[in-house]
Design a binder for these strands. Structure first.
Lengths: 205, 205, 205, 205
DNA sequence: CATGAATGAGGTTTCATTCAT
DNA sequence: GATGAATGAAACCTCATTCAT
C-alpha cells in the first residue's frame, strides 16, 4: 500500500518538467529534483531522456487506443462507430491534458524519432476514422484527407486551449463544434446551420 | 544579379538543415558547410542560431500575409474574402513546402520562444478567417474554434503530404477537400454531398 | 564440502570478468552476475573493486612463492636452486593461466597501486634468481638485469600464448627454449649451439 | 616560425599526464591544463581520449619502424641485420623514454583496444628478428620464441628502469647485457662468459 | 567582408558503494 | 548472511559563439 511506484513518480515529474520547459530545456537534473530522487535513480527506470519521453508518448497512445477499442465494441453501425471513435479520442486527450499538451504540442520538433512516433499515433487514430468514413460512403481519398483534417483540427484545439489557460469545459466546447463541422461537412447529418444542442444529447448514452 | 545575397544563401542552407535534422540536431557547422561559408560568416548575418530560425518563421509569415492582404483587397463580400483568405494561406504554405514543414513541424519543442511565435503566426491567419466568419453570421466563439480547426487541418495536411512524398498536386487535392468540408460545415454553400469540381473553377479568377 | 566458499566464487567470477574486459571495463554488476549473487554480497567479502583485484594479484604471488620456496628447499647448489626457481615460477604461471593473464597483462595502466604491486611481484621472483646468479659468479648488476630480462621473457611468452589459443604444451616448449637461451647466455652450461633434448631430461627428477 | 603545432603540444602534454597518472586517472581536464588550452581544443585534434592515446602508440611505433628500416638497409648479412634491428629497437625506445614508458608500461590493461594494438607493435618488431634468426640457422619455432623473449626482456628492462629513476645510461647498460645474453644464447658469438666491452665497439659504425 | 581556430559552460550518463530490509 | 534499490560524484564530450587575422 505504501508501495510507491518509482517509475510512475519519475514519469509524472518528467511530464511536468517537459510541459513547463519543452523537451530540450528539460534537464535530467530538473526532472529528478521534481521527482525527489537522485540522478542515478532516473537511469534505473529509463535508458535515457529520450526513452523517458517515448514512454510518455506511449502512455498517451495507450490511453486513447483503449478508449477507442472499448467504445467501438459497444456499437454497430459505421456512423455510430465513427462518432464513438471521435469521442474516444477526445476522451483520451482530455483524461490527462498535461500529458496531451506535452506529447502533441511540446514534442514535434524536438527529435526526429519523436516526430515519427507522433505521426504513427496520429495515423493510428486517423485509420479508424477512415475505415468508418468509407463505410459511410465517402471515397477512400476523401476519407483519408478528412480523417487527418479532423485529427489536425483536434490537435490544434488542444494547442489553443493549452495556451488560453481556460477551463477544460472550453476544450469540450471546441471539440463539439469540430464534430459538428466535420459531421455536416461529411454529410452525415441533415443539419446545415447552427449547433443544435440536443444533437449531442445521447452521445454517451 | 551577380550580387549574391549571402544572407539568403545561409537562410536557404539553414532551412534545409533544420528540415533534415530538426532544430537542436542542426549544428551551425552543418549549416555553414551547406552554405559554403565559414562559421564566423554566419554571425555576420544572424545574431544566433535562434535568430536564424526566427528569420525562417518570419519568412513564412510574411509570405502568407502578403498573399492574404493582396487577395483580400480584390474582393468585397465576406464569403469571397473568406475564400480568398483560405486560398491565400494555402498558396503561402505551398510556395515553399520545405519552409512550411520546418516552421510548422520543427518549431515546437525546440524553444519556448519559437512556440510562442508559431502560435502568433497561426493566430494571425486564424484571425482573418474569424473576422470573415463572423461577418458571415457565425458566433464569435464558433468562428474562433472553426478558424483554428481549419488552420490545424491545413497544417496536418502539409505534414501528411511531406511524409508521403507525393507530388504537389496531392496536396492541392487535400486542400480542396478541406475547403469543401469547412464550407459545408459552416453552411456557406448549398452543397452537401460530393465535390462539385466546377465549384472551385473560378477561385483564382 | 557442501560448504561453498562465497569469497572464492566471487574471486573466480571476477577473474573471468577482468580477463575478458580489463579492469576498468569490468563492472561490479558483471562480476556479481557471473558469481550469481547480489551487489551487496560482493562488499561482504571485498572492501572495494580495487581490493578484489589486489586479492587476485596476491593469489598469483602466493601461488608462485609457495612453488619457489618448496622447490628451493629440496636442492643445494646455486645452479640447481636457480633452475628450480625458474621452473617454480613457470609452474606457478602455468597453474592458472587466466589468473596469470589477468595479473600480468591487465594490471598495468589501471591503477598506480596495481602497477606498484605488480612490480613487487616481479621483483620478488627476480630476486631469487638474482641471488642464485650471484652465487653462480655473475656480477650483481649482470644478475639483476638478467633476472629481470628472464622474468620479462617469461611474461611475454605467457602473453603470446594467451593470444595464440594454442594448447598448454606450446607454452611449455616456449619456457624450455627460454631456459635454454638464458642458461647458455649466463654460461651455466657447456652447450652453445642447438638444443640438446636430453638436456632438460631430469629437471623435475 | 612562431607557428606552434597545437596537436603536437597537446600530444606532448597528454604523454606527460598519462605517464604520471596512468591512462584512466588521466583526465581531459588535466591534459588541457598541461597543454594550456581549453577542453574543446583537445577535441579539435583528437576524437577522444582513446584516440589520443592511440596516437601516442602510433608515434612510438613509427619511431621504431623508421629506425629499423633505415638500419637494416645499410647492412647485408643476417647476423648484422639482426644486430641492427635490435639496436634500432633500442634506439627507438630510447629516443623518448617517457613515450616508451607510457606506451609499454602504462597502456597494457587500460583498454582491450590498446592491448591489441600493443601486441601488433610487439609482433611487428619480433617479426624482423624472427626473419633474421631463421636465416642464422634457428628453427622457425626457436626463432619465434626467442624473438618474443627478447622483446619481453627489453620491455621489462624499460619498466625496471622507469621505476628506478636512474639515468638513461643505466638503461643502455641493461640493453647491452640483454643483447649479450641472447646473442650467446642463440649461438651467434664465441663468447660465453663475461661481457667484452670491446665487443659492442662498432655496433653503430 | 570573410575566416576558422579556440573557447568553456553545461549536459548526459556511468557505476562503485551503501544501507534498510 | 544476503539483498538490490538508491545514491551522487565525477567524467567525457558537444557546440554555439568569439575575435584576431
Amino acid at each position: 500500500m505504501e508501495e510507491r511506484d518509482r517509475r510512475s513518480e519519475i514519469l509524472q515529474a518528467a511530464q511536468g518538467v517537459f510541459n513547463r520547459n519543452g523537451y530540450h530545456q528539460a534537464t535530467i537534473r530538473a526532472i529528478v529534483d521534481a521527482a525527489n530522487c537522485a540522478a542515478g535513480t532516473f537511469y534505473l527506470y529509463f535508458a535515457s531522456k529520450e526513452d523517458c519521453f517515448l514512454a510518455l508518448m506511449d502512455k498517451l497512445y495507450r490511453n486513447i487506443m483503449e478508449q477507442i477499442l472499448v467504445a467501438r465494441s459497444q456499437v454497430a453501425g459505421p456512423a455510430d462507430k465513427l462518432r464513438q471513435s471521435f469521442w474516444a479520442v477526445v476522451e483520451g486527450l482530455s483524461r490527462d491534458t498535461e500529458l496531451t499538451s506535452v506529447v502533441l504540442v511540446r514534442a514535434a520538433g524536438a527529435n526526429p524519432l519523436f516526430e515519427e512516433r507522433l505521426w504513427r499515433v496520429r495515423d493510428a487514430f486517423a485509420e479508424f476514422i477512415v475505415e468508418d468514413l468509407v463505410e459511410c460512403g465517402l471515397t477512400s481519398e476523401q476519407a483519408a484527407i478528412g480523417a487527418h483534417a479532423c485529427v489536425g483540427a483536434l490537435a490544434e484545439a488542444v494547442g489553443v486551449w493549452v495556451r488560453s489557460g481556460q477551463p477544460e469545459s472550453a476544450l469540450l466546447v471546441a471539440f463539439e463544434e469540430i464534430e459538428r463541422i466535420f459531421w455536416v461537412g461529411w454529410g452525415l447529418t441533415r443539419q446545415i446551420e447552427g449547433v443544435d444542442s440536443t444533437y449531442y444529447g445521447d452521445r454517451n448514452s
